[in-house]
Simulated scan of single mutants.
Amino acid sequence: MHGSEDKDRLHSTPEAYTRPQLMLRVFGSLAIVGVMLGLMLGRLTQPDPVELQQVEVAPDGLLLWFNHEPKLHGEHIEGAVALLFDAQGHAQSGQLQVNQRNVNWRLRLADQGLLLNLVAARPLRGEWGGSKVDGRWRLEIHLREE
């Protein structure tokens, strides 16, 4: 052997493997298709977001109408009532009467959803409960003075 000429390929160095790595491409394509199908199925099975549709003033509180039941957290904070809904909606405000006294309410957007504050000159206590009515969720808030 006098050199590395390519005469009969018996004693020469092997050529570099030039065939494309098809299995790697096949698995990569399958992974991409699987991710895309998973994203599409997840989007189809995701429920509609909870949305506040309407706010009504009741004789001793408020009625809030949602398209689905929202997650709710409520507290009494220094004589005020605060309710946090995991829902979408727009800011609103108004006034209602409890025992012939004014109660101001304000609904505003918060980081976790919608925040409803009910404030009066005297300390308030609130009770709330929801039920499904005509395919929508109705949350009733009843207020009284302490």
Rank of each mutant, 00 (worst) to 15 (best):
E69K: 08
L143E: 00
S29N: 09
L39S: 11
S12E: 09
L109E: 15
L24R: 05
L115A: 07
G94P: 01
Q53Y: 04
P123I: 01
F27M: 01
F66P: 13
V26K: 10
L39P: 01
E75S: 03
L39C: 12
G79P: 05
G129M: 02
V98L: 04
H11N: 11
G38R: 13
L107Y: 14
G113D: 07
E146F: 09
L96V: 08
V35D: 15
L72G: 12
R125C: 06
R125L: 14
P47I: 06
A31W: 08
G135W: 11
Q53N: 11
R19P: 00
D134E: 06
E146Q: 06
D8I: 01
E127F: 08
R136T: 14
T18H: 04
S131C: 06
V26H: 11
P47T: 03
L64R: 12
S4A: 03
P59Y: 03
T45Y: 10
A31R: 06
L30Y: 03
W128M: 00
M36A: 15
V57S: 00
D6I: 06
L37I: 14
H142T: 15
L41T: 14
R122A: 12
M1C: 14
V55Y: 03
V98N: 00
L30D: 10
F66V: 12
E69R: 11
D111W: 10
E56Y: 02
D111L: 07
P123L: 01
R136E: 10
V81P: 07
L118P: 15
E127R: 10
E146C: 04
E140T: 15
L143Q: 07
P70G: 06
V133N: 05
L72V: 15
L10V: 14
N117C: 04
L84N: 12
H11Y: 11
D86L: 09
L143C: 11
S4N: 07
L96G: 13
N117W: 05
W128E: 03
V103N: 06
T45L: 12
D60L: 09
F85A: 00
W137N: 10
A120Q: 03
P20R: 01
Q112W: 11
A110E: 14
G61W: 10
T45I: 13
R25H: 09
H11S: 09
G94M: 04
P49L: 02
R101G: 00
V26W: 13
R108W: 04
R122I: 07
L124Q: 05
V55C: 05
V133T: 09
G113M: 05
E146K: 03
H76L: 13
R144W: 09
D134P: 12
E78M: 04
A121S: 11
Q21L: 06
F27Q: 02
P49C: 07
T18L: 04
G129R: 00
N67W: 08
L118H: 14
P123V: 01
G130N: 07
D86V: 14
P70W: 02
L52C: 00
A80H: 09
L62I: 12
L118C: 09
D8T: 05
L115T: 01
A16N: 03
A16P: 07
P20Y: 01
A120E: 01
G126K: 02
A87E: 09
A16L: 07
G130T: 08
V119W: 02
V55M: 04
D8H: 05
V55Q: 03
Q97S: 11
Q92D: 10
L52A: 03
Q112F: 07
P123W: 00
